[in-house]
Simulated scan of single mutants.
Amino acid sequence: MLSVLNSRIAMLPLCLAGLLAISAGQAFGDDEQVWAALKRGGMVVLLRHTHVDMREGIAHLAPGNCAEEVNLSARGVEQAKRIGEAFRAHGIAVGEVWTSAYCRCIDTGKLAFGRATPVQYLMPPGVISEPQAKLNQERVLQDILDHRSSSNLVMITHDLNISNIVLEPSIAMGDFFVLQPNGTDFDVIGKIRMGDR
């Protein structure tokens, strides 16, 4: 299993170069195919937290004191609510909702799905050591491969975390990818763009 994870990590630079040449519209199926896959269940959703106003201190984590962090903007609050409404409108069953420990991720989960469980391994790589970031990525990959449930697992995290898994260089705030574990690897079913709407 570790060899699968290591080979996926080793292929990152090559895959990123290839994906830069392919538009998202060509690379992934349309929205209805993605929602249909979620309706079947058993998927993993990798969601970038919804909109924040970028400013200095974006990487500041203040456990238990969200006022010291960069938090969701009014637009981000509405995005998160809209994501939850879209899941409910499509009749999507959501199981666990795991998030980065940053308040913007926790709040996205609570606003969209009514709950959020922070986990340390969804922290952005820029705020932890490189060895820890690699271990965290391996943990995320392992959790994706291990997901076996009729409901969907939601992981709410940061752009680099998602880029390193799906090998797409740019993830807008509020966008999410849907992955289907297949035992030894996973398939990227598609991406839903919520960030620019």
Rank of each mutant, 00 (worst) to 15 (best):
A93Q: 13
P13S: 06
V166T: 09
L153C: 02
E68G: 06
L179F: 08
P118H: 09
E85S: 13
L46M: 09
H49A: 05
S23N: 11
R193D: 15
I58F: 14
I58E: 15
L14R: 12
E32I: 07
D175S: 07
V4A: 14
V70D: 03
I171N: 06
L47G: 02
G195P: 05
L38P: 07
A27Y: 08
V45A: 13
P181F: 04
A133L: 01
M123H: 03
V97W: 00
L167V: 10
M43W: 02
R55K: 15
A93L: 09
G174S: 05
S3P: 09
P125Y: 15
Q142E: 11
I92C: 12
L20M: 11
P124H: 10
M43V: 02
L141Y: 05
G183I: 11
V154W: 03
S129N: 13
A93P: 02
G190F: 09
A86I: 01
A89Y: 03
E78V: 07
L122I: 00
L61R: 01
A74K: 10
D146S: 13
E69D: 02
G183P: 13
P125M: 12
Q142D: 07
E78G: 10
Q142W: 07
R104N: 08
M54K: 15
E85A: 15
H60L: 14
Q137K: 14
V178F: 11
R55C: 14
V154S: 03
V140D: 00
R193P: 01
Q137Y: 05
G190Q: 09
N6Q: 14
V52W: 06
L61G: 00
F87T: 04
L38Y: 03
Y102Q: 04
L145N: 01
S163K: 12
D159T: 00
K81D: 08
D159L: 02
I22F: 06
A89T: 01
D187A: 14
D185L: 06
N152I: 11
L14H: 12
G126R: 01
H147A: 01
L38M: 13
S7H: 00
D143Y: 09
V70N: 03
R82E: 14
G18W: 07
G64M: 00
S7E: 08
H90T: 00
I165L: 06
I83H: 05
N164P: 03
R55M: 15
A59S: 12
I162G: 06
C66Q: 14
D159S: 14
T157W: 08
A101M: 10
I156L: 09
P118C: 06
E78K: 14
V188W: 02
A101D: 10
R193C: 07
V70F: 06
R48D: 11
Y102D: 01
D107Q: 15
N136P: 04
I92L: 15
T157I: 06
D175R: 10
Q137G: 05
L72N: 02
I192M: 00
S7Q: 08
C103D: 13
K81T: 06
L46E: 01
A17K: 13
A21S: 12
I144E: 04
S170E: 13
H60G: 03
H158C: 09
V52H: 01
N6K: 11
S151R: 15
